[in-house]
Computed example of a mutant assay.
Amino acid sequence: MNRVVHPIEAESYRRMRARLDTSHLPPLTRAVVERVVHSSADLEYARDLVMDEGDLERGHAALHAGAPVVVDVEMVGAGITRRETVCRLRDGVAGPGLTRSAHGIRLAFEQVGPGALWVIGNAPTALEELLRLDAAPALVIGLPVGFVGAVESKAALRESGLPAVSNVSEKGGSAVASAALNALLYHPVPQSKETL
């Protein structure tokens, strides 16, 4: 089913593209950059985001093949359209030295196992906990926001070698994390030669 784009969104993209040239970017990278910039009205994300087209291609394929989508907070899940998400933040009580966000990530991994897409837009501790697990993710969208731990957790994500979308600065948040996932949801699935 094709997504209907509202005229306001179309005009917003037109204005954004008049100020930001993304034509040189590979297709999925371009989709993610544009959707994040659109959701935040922050052109700086075009230089701040870090991702690999091959990782995005594999994440896109896993997403459209039905891989689970795990989010760190309900606000990220609320921003993801056309897809159910798993959020375990409210479940159980965190133990000593473990934040609720980190505990929720542990519980979510116990539920979904390897191969999920992880979308973290709020808590650096959630991203840190994911990096401690043997989650074998299809893709990690790690865009937590804040002045404490956000930069470091995103740097650790990039150093981990996991397939990821991250950014260098303190910026991030639920809206941009869900926007990055939505970019992959909205991007068309390539037709295989067998179906042509």
Rank of each mutant, 00 (worst) to 15 (best):
Y13K: 12
Y13V: 15
R14H: 12
L20R: 09
P26H: 05
P27A: 15
A31C: 10
V32F: 07
V33M: 07
R35G: 01
V36I: 15
V37N: 10
H38F: 14
S39C: 11
D42S: 12
Y45P: 11
D48E: 12
D48Y: 08
L49C: 08
V50Q: 07
D55S: 15
A61K: 14
A62W: 01
H64A: 09
V69W: 01
V70I: 11
A78L: 13
I80A: 03
T81K: 13
R82K: 12
R82P: 04
E84L: 14
E84H: 14
T85W: 03
V86G: 07
R88F: 03
R90G: 14
V93G: 03
A102V: 04
A102F: 01
H103F: 11
H103K: 10
H103A: 11
G104I: 08
R106A: 09
A108F: 06
F109G: 00
F109E: 00
Q111E: 15
A116G: 13
G121T: 05
P124T: 02
T125A: 07
L127E: 01
E129T: 07
L130G: 00
I141K: 01
G142V: 00
P144K: 03
P144N: 09
V145P: 02
G149C: 07
A155R: 15
A156R: 06
A156G: 05
